[in-house]
Amino acid sequence: MDIQSPTHGALTAAGVASFIVGALVLFNSPNIPGTPRVSVPLVIGTGVTLGVVFMAAMAFALRAQRAPIRIGQESLVGQTGYARSDLNPVGNVQLGSELWTAENVDPTVPIPRGARVEVVRVEGIRLIVKRVN
């Protein structure tokens, strides 16, 4: 919940505090005879350790949410590659280590084989490209 809500760690802190208070009340009640007592530093240390682990996990999750898109159609726009065949107006483009079917954004001016191209947009599994000088 702390990742999706704008509480800045308050829910994690409340959970850790609830764990510490609950463990101390449950195991260190003076009115119940014969119940073993738990070390207060052990409970607090465990609670703080859990809090640090959850805060680190929350930091990694928030960093992952803010990371740029690395896969999918959105990641292809703006990348450059090379024409593997003449694009007049359709041909093949190598983008990274992948071979794509591509269409020239300006069908009146063909793109020769070996020319550098940039992806303008993606339509299905076809790239729309323009020549880069």
Score class of each variant (00 low, 15 high):
Ala13Val: 14
Arg37Phe: 10
Leu24Phe: 01
Val93Gln: 05
Ser5Ile: 11
Thr101Ala: 12
Val122Asp: 04
Pro107Asn: 09
Ala59Arg: 13
Ala23Pro: 04
Val105Gly: 03
Arg126Gln: 13
Ala67Asp: 10
Phe54Trp: 09
Pro41Phe: 01
Val77Phe: 08
Gln94Ile: 14
Ser97Ala: 12
Leu42Phe: 15
Ala64Lys: 10
Asp106Tyr: 10
Gly78Thr: 03
Arg131Phe: 03
Gly34Pro: 02
Met58Tyr: 09
Gly9Arg: 06
Ser97Cys: 00
Leu127Asp: 02
Asn28His: 01
Val120Met: 11
Ala64Arg: 14
Ile125Phe: 10
Val129Pro: 04
Gly47Ile: 05
Val21Thr: 11
Pro68His: 05
Val40Ala: 13
Gly96Thr: 07
Leu99Asn: 11
Ser97Trp: 02
Ala13His: 06
Arg116Cys: 06
Gly51Asn: 01
Thr12Arg: 10
Pro68Gly: 02
Phe60Thr: 08
Thr46Arg: 04
Pro33Phe: 02
Ala61Met: 10
Asn28Lys: 02
Pro6Val: 03
Ala57Asn: 08
Val52Phe: 12
Phe19Gly: 08
Gly114Leu: 08
Met55Cys: 04
Met1Ile: 09
Glu103Met: 11
Phe60Lys: 10
Val43Arg: 06
Glu74Ala: 15
Ala23Asn: 12
Pro6His: 09
Val93Trp: 06
Val16Ala: 15
Phe19Arg: 07
Thr12Gln: 12
Val117Met: 05
Phe60Pro: 00
Phe19Met: 14
Val105Ile: 12
Val48Ala: 15
Met55Tyr: 12
Thr101Asp: 12
Ile71Glu: 14
Thr46Ile: 13
Val40Arg: 09
Leu76Lys: 04
Gln73Val: 10
Thr35Trp: 14
Val132Trp: 02
Ile32Ala: 09
Val16Ser: 07
Arg37Ser: 13
Arg37Pro: 03
Gly124Ile: 05
Val77Pro: 07
Val52Arg: 05
Thr49Asp: 00
Arg131Gln: 15
Asn133Tyr: 10
Leu95Ile: 06
Val90Leu: 07
Val16Gln: 03
Ser29Tyr: 09
Ala102Lys: 02
Val40Cys: 03
Ser29Glu: 13
Ala23Thr: 12
Gly47Asp: 00
Glu98Met: 11
Gly9Asn: 03
Val93Ser: 04
Ala102Cys: 03
Gly45Pro: 08
Glu74Lys: 14
Gly96Glu: 07
Val119Lys: 05
Ile111Ala: 06
Ala115Val: 06
Ala115His: 10
Met55Glu: 14
Thr108Cys: 00
Pro33Ser: 04
Ser39Asp: 13
Arg70Asn: 09
Leu87Gly: 02
Gly96Arg: 09
Leu24His: 03
Leu95Gln: 03
Met55Pro: 01
Pro68Cys: 05
Arg37Ile: 04
Ala64Gly: 11
Lys130Leu: 06
Val25His: 04
Ile71Asp: 10
Trp100His: 06
Ala67Leu: 09
Val90Arg: 14
Gly114Thr: 08
Val48Trp: 07
